[in-house]
């Protein structure tokens, strides 16, 4: 502890709560797991010895590149022309920018099938009109036109179908950190849809609820997510957060009776919470409002 003369000033640094906001145990485990999963690659890179200088190898590589590159470009041009001839829109959505090849001849064979596979995946990950998740109503202000285009970083953030729940959760967290609220919400919801019953799905449910409430202006959607989380794990690690989110959602919706009931439940079930006093205060306000004419 240190002091600045004139007023009480201390910057206590320890493992106790504060100044960082408190987080749940589940979130702590998510952060640690994500760090551990990212760590081995980095460590291998650190231990890798610096490359030795081999000029002859560089010359050989350059020569090979000089030969392979034109061949690849020509082959790619022919292939692109063939694909454009069949399905130009599909190609664009897949994230491959078509280039002008006015002189290339269309290939006689139909478009290769592998082009279609990633389209289905990207659409599934980004489409706001995908099937509803845990009866969450879609946010009215999230039309497809508002979606950012699938540029490289975004495309990298969208996990493959075989991604682990931890990966998906991490990707959603990354999107949230980039303020891509809608994409983050969708990925959280995809996580809980793909891995129902997993701990990650539970965390994703609450996280998606918070985003819908705070960022997407969708209190009804948030309410559905919080309710699902509480139904799934009434005593779960994030139950307090889900109940508090429920209160806020009811408040935004102007549903005073439901808010009062949720507040009452919160102070009963979480009397030790740091939010308990705020809940009590708000409960008194709501009761006063309902009593006064």
């Amino acid at each position: 502890m240190s002091s600045v003369s004139g007023f009480r000033f201390c910057l206590a640094l320890d493992a106790q709560a504060g100044p960082a906001s408190r987080i749940s145990r589940a979130r702590t485990m998510n952060i640690v797991s994500a760090a551990m999963e990212r760590e081995p690659t980095s460590r291998i890179d650190l231990r890798r010895p610096p490359p030795r200088g081999r000029p002859w190898r560089q010359v050989a590589l350059l020569a090979a590149a000089a030969f392979v590159l034109p061949v690849t470009v020509v082959a790619g041009a022919v292939r692109l022309a063939a694909i454009r001839h069949i399905a130009p829109t599909t190609l664009f959505i897949a994230g491959r920018t078509p280039v002008a090849h006015t002189e290339a001849k269309p290939a006689p064979q139909p478009a290769p099938r592998e082009v279609e596979a990633p389209v289905a995946h990207v659409d599934e990950a980004l489409a706001p009109n995908a099937p509803a998740v845990v009866d969450v109503p879609r946010a009215p202000e999230t039309p497809r036109a508002h979606l950012p285009m699938p540029v490289a970083p975004r495309a990298a953030a969208v996990p493959a179908v075989s991604a682990s729940p931890q990966d998906m959760l991490q990707n959603a967290n990354d999107l949230r950190a980039q303020h891509q609220w809608l994409a983050a919400t969708q990925l959280y919801e995809k996580t809980l849809r793909t891995f129902p019953g997993r701990a990650e799905a539970y965390s994703a449910m609450v996280a998606a609820g918070v985003l819908r409430l705070d960022q997407l202006g969708d209190p009804r959607g948030a309410l559905a997510l919080f309710s699902s989380a509480l139904r799934a794990r009434p005593q779960g690690a994030l139950a307090e957060e889900a109940r508090w989110g429920t209160i806020q959602a009811f408040r935004v919706l102007g549903d005073r009776p439901s808010e009062r009931a949720a507040l009452q439940e919160f102070v009963t079930l979480h009397p030790q919470s740091l939010l308990a006093s705020r809940a009590q205060t708000r409960l008194r306000e709501v009761r006063g409002e309902s009593v006064s004419p």
């Binding site: 709560a17 504060g18 408190r22 749940s24 740091l274 939010l275």
Partner: peptide
């Protein structure tokens, strides 16, 4: 942006110390 202290966990420092640190930061 500040978290609305939504993510709470049990245990840890006393509430007043926590709040003091939050005010300080």
């Amino acid at each position: 942006q500040y978290n609305s202290d939504l993510m709470l966990a049990s245990g840890g420092a006393a509430a007043d110390e926590y709040l003091h640190r939050r005010e300080m930061v």
